[in-house]
Write a protein that binds this DNA or RNA. Structure first.
Lengths: 339, 339
DNA sequence: GTGAAAGCGCTAACAC
DNA sequence: GTGTTAGCGCTTTCAC
């Protein structure tokens, strides 16, 4: 069971196998790919030779002649955020089930240079297609730079009819969450906004809509990045303002930060202030109080994205699908202290 | 600015560029790789032709002749667990800074078939080397299957002198955390054990050691998977046993689940039971009560892993480095209710 | 500096 | 079924 061919340390090639098995190179290729029938006895000889030499086909050579990479690229922002991480998990899972590998490249920001670098990195590898997470401006910018000739599917973000895409129907869930808070008796609902693909889409748009529908003033949203610690600061600030009785946060991690800040600032949740999040983070149910939120199935988003890409690769056209979040009512929202 | 060569939709090749620029193919290659000087005027013509044709070198062809993939494989268990996710973030960051892409494959379990499938997936792509996360049995099994000829670095887990590796010095931190609880006055400390690379290493070993050093009985550890919801069940169970006054959990997410279960079961944290975690999850500081834990710099682990792999690729030998966790004392641990 | 020639290790096309 | 002949699109000699 040598792992090398002959005396040198050079990895065995298909012709080493052919030589040892006493067949031609294409015959070896045939047993490798199963592209054509081979006499059982030769098949056996070849398999034996492969095992004996510890032969593995050279992936680059394979790709060069077959023109299939067996890999897809993934463009994403920071992978440590729950929604991104879960989406990638879904992509990987579905891709792997399909024998496809995923090549991940992070787009650090929407800055020209960063975007260019990330796209360049992706394109400099053999890929069958690309999935881009369009949750935020970085994703949008990256998508724009991708050549039209490359099969691409966009995940989430605003609708772009020029590409296959899986949409997250966040607006309605954002509206419902806000309306629920209003129904509970809150005069208005404040919003802590996370970076998103467009200023006025998705969850934030739903929030605005609910307030408008109810004829309430729309307080200016508070912007935050992804770090929950920033949200703690925002929470402390909001604790100072007793007009704030209900807060709709861009995601659960931010909601947890806001709750921490509110409590640090001396306000009870949900007694003084109701807080709701978005996404249903795995820890949201364990939080004290348990977080009311809208569950998003990010893994399904990722899986579906891979399927759409596969369809596109198989010659299908651009498709658009949509995923609905579902409301999860827990303990962090309640009626305001006094009417 | 056409993106294709000639009338057909076929992507432009290096010879299209050579033709248009009026130079030979190798000359184009020279300006592409910078491997040799080219007369400024020709350089210019070539660059113009490249732009005009929207030419991009074919990655597979490039790899086949240059024998460099510009990519590294990453073998990991479930990517949604904090430690794994952060490590991968570090790997990606360092790799990208280096112009290297990462190809991620998840090893679902230590089952023969799953491991084989994951390793196969990695090896069927052009890669310069592999980084394997050896936090758990799946990682260990995958590592064992990787051919000796491939440059590999192992991250965390038990020391394996046959490969480059970055160690996490968890034992001492586990010991210190447990000893701290004992010093607070607890008779013993219970342990909720997460899947790990070996039954008796790292954090769990430190816990055992601290108890032994103090001459205390070592209660049987409670085993759990990665899902915090399982930990909630364990917490409820422990709430029934008033011998349990201090719990050292395998990681922070598990600690949060255990706390939830304890509280659900009517016990206060830390008043009735002290709980400590491990890793310093970003939400650990925001939890109520804030979680005492040991901070691990997983991103640094990942970055260092890439550096070791790079050294190995450059002809260096096997290296072993080590990273020390640091204790983070917060509010979830306190003296037991009564002496 | 530059071009011609020769691979890299495979798969595809085409006879037989 | 199987071997022979051609590429895939680059990089790398090696003369000039």
């Amino acid at each position: 069971m040598t792992a090398t061919a002959g005396s040198d340390g050079r990895p065995a090639t298909i012709s080493d196998v052919a030589l040892l098995a006493g067949v031609s190179v294409p015959t070896v290729s045939r047993v490798l790919t199963g592209s054509a029938r081979v006499t059982p006895s030769k098949q056996d000889q070849v398999e034996r030779a492969i095992a004996q030499l510890g032969f593995r086909p050279n992936p680059a050579a394979r790709q060069l002649s077959s023109r299939e990479a067996g890999a897809i690229g993934v463009l994403t922002a920071d992978t440590s955020i729950h929604g991104y991480a879960e989406t990638i998990r879904g992509i990987e899972e579905e891709a792997r089930a399909n024998g496809t590998a995923i090549l991940i490249t992070v787009v650090e920001s929407a800055e020209e240079e960063r975007v260019e670098q990330a796209v360049e990195a992706v394109l400099s590898h053999p890929l069958d297609g690309v999935i881009a997470l369009k949750f935020d401006p970085a994703g949008v910018a990256a998508l724009r730079r991708l050549p039209r000739s490359l099969p691409v599917v966009a995940l989430a973000g605003a609708r772009d009819p020029s590409r296959s895409q899986v949409l997250l129907a966040e607006k309605e869930a954002g509206r419902a969450l806000t309306a629920m808070l209003l129904d509970l008796g809150h005069r208005t609902v404040h919003h802590v906004r996370i970076p998103s693909s467009s200023r006025n889409s998705g969850r934030a748009a739903g929030w605005r809509r609910a307030l408008q529908d109810a004829g309430r003033a729309v307080p200016p949203p508070l912007d935050t990045g992804w770090d929950p610690r920033d949200a703690v600061r925002l929470g402390r600030l909001m604790a100072l303002d007793d007009q704030v009785t209900a807060v709709f946060c861009g995601n659960d991690e931010i909601a947890m930060g806001v709750m921490r800040g509110l409590i640090d600032g001396g306000r009870g949740v949900p007694d003084d202030v109701s807080v709701v999040g978005f996404d249903d983070h795995p820890l949201a149910a364990l939080w004290t109080p348990a977080l009311t939120t809208a569950r998003q199935d990010f893994a399904a988003l990722g899986r579906l994205g891979v399927r759409l890409l596969r369809e596109q690769l198989a010659g299908g056209g651009r498709v658009c699908r949509s995923l609905e979040p579902s409301l999860v009512l827990r303990g962090s929202a309640s009626p305001p202290r006094s009417g």
